[in-house]
Amino acid sequence: MSDTSCASVATFDTCPDVSIPMESPLSVAVNQVSMSTPAPAVSQESQVQFEEKPFLGHLILRGSAMVLGEAVSEVLGVSLPSQPLGLVFDASGQRSVQWLSPDEWLVIVPSGEEFELENRLREVLGAAHFAIVNVSGGQTLIELSGDKARELLMKSVTYDVHPSNFPVGKAVSVAFAKASAILRRPSETRYELVLRRSFADYCYRWLVDAGEDYGLGVTR
């Protein structure tokens, strides 16, 4: 492919050595049991479960749907969601592509795959007009599950999360507890939140507080 355009972009692996310890945005809040307010444990009464999925690979793709669509389906095997607010997963359910705006998509892949994916996309896209940014360090994914997960969200977002308005395969960026977050519905029983690093601790504390009524438990 066009080596000139690839060569002009400096890419680097943000985490080349797995032996270097990493800290997720929520590692302190969730894991330090010695804190004054330790994370509530999952129990029989827990109607909502909270789990962080740290260190996933997050990539932001910018460009036109026509340019990116072909490359994404070739490299990832997933078609780019062209409809607004779309969210698609690959067959394994491990990799997702989400519509963020008419020319912006969020790709989330398992930890460690993002650098190779970025390079392969750059190779396939060649000299086309596009941008790929690795934002893995800037945000984290959390998962809410359980019978009362929807009710917990109803306390936190102004967006209508009723299944008639928010079906499986929809993802929206919304005002979450006076911060901003991306809210995703990957399956009937689960909700995902993509939180910005600097907001993660605040949103976590908000959820723990709001989830007290439902016996929210944090999976470590």
């Binding site: 607004p84 607010l85 705006s101 008419p102 102004t158 967006y159 929206v172």
Partner: peptide
């Protein structure tokens, strides 16, 4: 609260998002 239709998202959203 106002509900404003975003022509790009294609649905009504709360005023605080705008």
């Amino acid at each position: 609260m106002f509900y404003i239709h975003c022509p790009y998202c294609g649905e009504y959203r709360g005023e605080e998002e705008f």
